[in-house]
Design a protein around this nucleic acid. Sequence first.
DNA 1: AATAGTCGCAACCGCCAGGGG
DNA 2: CCCCCTGGCGGTTGCGACTAT
Length: 282
Amino acid sequence: MARPPCCDKSMVKKGLWTADEDAKLLAYISTHGTGNWTSVPKKAGLKRCGKSCRLRWTNYLRPNLKHEGFTPEEEEKIITLHATIGSRWSIIAKQLPGRTDNDVKNHWNTKLSKQLYQNGIDPITHRPVSVVMQSLKELETVTASRCCSTSANLNNVVPQPALSNLFPQQQVGLSVFSDSFSEASSYAATAKATAPPSSPTGFDWTDLLSDSILMSCDDIVGANSCFGINGENNNKGRAEICGAVMEDESNGSGSFVDAILEHDRKLCSKFYELLGDEDDVL
DNA sequence: AATAGTCGCAACCGCCAGGGG
DNA sequence: CCCCCTGGCGGTTGCGACTAT
């Protein structure tokens, strides 16, 4: 059954907000607070949808918002976080004081993703475009020569060189593990194949640490070494990391993201320790 | 000067999760 | 336990400003 609209579309004004409308909304909220957004437009004397009012307030009228351009430091942070957690704009925006998720999303779509591509980096996978293209060619070759079942076990289908090209450990501060996150986010963004994970903060890492993702992580490194040399240790390691991340998450979005990056670094170190090649740790 | 093309930002849309009745 | 309402999110579209021809 179709969901009814949140308000009578024929009665509400759409399009750009006027200075007068802004003033009315600002005056109302500064006096009464936001409360129930559905009732805000009526009480504030606006012919707008409650959702539209909330968006206007959140993205433009709210105090302490930055309206100037993004700094190089902010851009770097966006790129790093996007590489790690994908297009979770609200989480990324929380790491940038005065910025909204809409700001970050727009800046990414209009500038950063293009910049990355021009510099030879695929903005979805954060890998060199040439490597991604090469890997896609290899995938095409293999899938054309083999009749694939619905099994998601890439080991049976994709040659290890293709996988290692797609997911090498090669970026500062990013491990193969976070690449799996990026991969998962990219899939979610492009195909919406699975329901988004859920949690009190809108994000549940235990879902992201599902077997399919972890399988690919194991496949990528080819040595069951995401969390331990032997496969039997993997679940324990996963549980430890899930628990730690969730614990950090409860402390707020800042520590939540910090926790992700910290675990990323730890995993990176652990990975190379296990391979006995610590010199390569970035 | 007029028109087409591009860019960047603001706003909208539809979906989802959580909370309350 | 179910249903409805609301807020929040990510993707997409619309539109004005700017630039190139």
